[in-house]
Design a protein around this nucleic acid. Structure first.
Lengths: 239, 239
DNA sequence: CCAAAAGTGTTGGTTTTACACCCATGC
DNA sequence: GCATGGGTGTAAAACCAACACTTTTGG
């Protein structure tokens, strides 16, 4: 028998996170777009965007593609989450899903219009989803909250330059708890993951805030030996 | 096109770690068994044990099976590492490998006899391997060293009961640096991941050491929402 | 008694946390 | 001026690393 022997189909899906103000409380919280299934199994149920892996694309490319196709978003951060492959996770056929998780900037999230088959949900209270996607979402959220505390993924939610308040707002939204501005500042500044720019942000009715820029070099150190998580969409690394 | 459409074959491989005394220095270091490839591509090169995913087994089951088939080992710990799926990682056919990493007790490692096609290597200096397996090994080692510091995987290397010296020896071997016995003791005891037994270990020409037992309950808390990483060999998951 | 590892104590330094306080701006 | 966040200072608490010292065994 040939090396290709497998009755298992392979799919790539993505959990997409963005921050948006809660429609009622106005507080920033974590949201994610889901797509409605238009075929069996689980017709009509909400599910993670994804699809079968094409033979000519890498895993991350596949994630970025299906993500863009369904939601028009281009993620700022994209990393593999986990491969889910339990025998019975998909009624009617063995499917192994390699799941990625992505972070998109808040402004971008607004671009992703809602349609009949695409809708944003608050990550902490998604409805009952297709397949084992509830478990996947839960795990992705756990990873997000976890990783926020020991790496610098928070930058993926903000612009190229940002104030420390903006960055703190991201942390507070994800971790769901207020942080001391003074201590947060020292913690971030001391970590070297951020570098101050010349510019200040005026306009608020208060003292202007210094703008910072993400320091890629310093952050790469903790990411392990895997060929750096760069984005398929843009050049990256081009200064 | 049917849901099964895929030209990509799916394999499961495992990086197996065990601690063994270095033949020259005598110091404990990290070792791993590799298998020799007996067919193209990369005939004759060393590679991670693994094989195609069978349709009727879960991913972890597959890892445990191929691991047992090739090395006769049953791991104490088994966790998914990463899915490798670059287009060109396997000459002559697209293969996505879902890689697990496993820890086996030192005594067990001795069971795994060396044959013509199975040999133990020091993890830090493996030869040039087939496919992208050098990268995989490097990543697995990184994860091992990383995870040792914030979780309680060290227990997988020792017996059901153990002295704190034995546990410290594990840490020192993996981290490759000596640890202060006094501070190590406090750190472990304070973490709650270990619970003292009634028994002492006599026999050394020194004061007997208290035996401890692993405290599963306390450790599970940090492992995220994924259905606990327990071993396929024993019950679990049957439900 | 001695060697060696088990286990406890102590101390100085760093890191975290909580909160007081001054600074610069828009209105 | 005053309200509002930006940004600095600081002291108590918690944590950590280094190392002295006491305990209990085998020889």
């Amino acid at each position: 028998m040939a090396a290709h022997a497998t009755d298992v189909s392979l799919a790539v899906s993505t959990v997409i996170f963005a921050l948006r103000p809660h429609p009622e409380t106005g507080r920033m919280t974590v949201w994610m777009p889901l797509v409605r299934r238009i075929r069996e199994p689980f017709v009509g149920k909400w599910a993670l965007p994804g699809g079968p892996l094409e033979p000519d694309e890498d895993l991350a490319e596949s994630a970025a593609r299906t993500l863009a196709e369904t939601t028009l978003l281009t993620p700022q951060y994209l990393e593999q989450l986990y491969a889910f492959g339990n025998i019975d996770r998909s009624p009617g056929g063995r499917v192994v899903s390699i799941v990625y998780w992505a972070l998109v900037r808040s402004e971008e999230a607004d671009v992703a219009v809602e349609t009949e088959n695409v809708r944003w949900f608050e990550a902490d209270s998604v409805p009952e989803l297709a397949f084992d996607h509830n478990l996947i979402v839960e795990y992705a959220l756990w990873r997000l909250r976890n990783k926020l505390e020991y790496s610098s993924i928070a930058h993926a939610f903000v612009g190229d330059t940002f104030t420390l308040s903006e960055l703190r707002e991201v942390h507070e939204a994800v971790l769901q708890k207020p942080l001391d501005p003074a201590n947060f500042r020292r913690q971030i500044e001391g970590s070297g993951q951020v570098v101050p720019t010349e510019h200040l942000q005026t306009g608020g009715r208060h003292r202007p805030a210094r703008l910072y820029r993400y320091n890629r070099a310093a952050s790469d150190e903790n990411n392990g030996p895997l060929p750096s998580r760069s984005l398929p969409g843009r050049t990256q690394g081009a200064s």
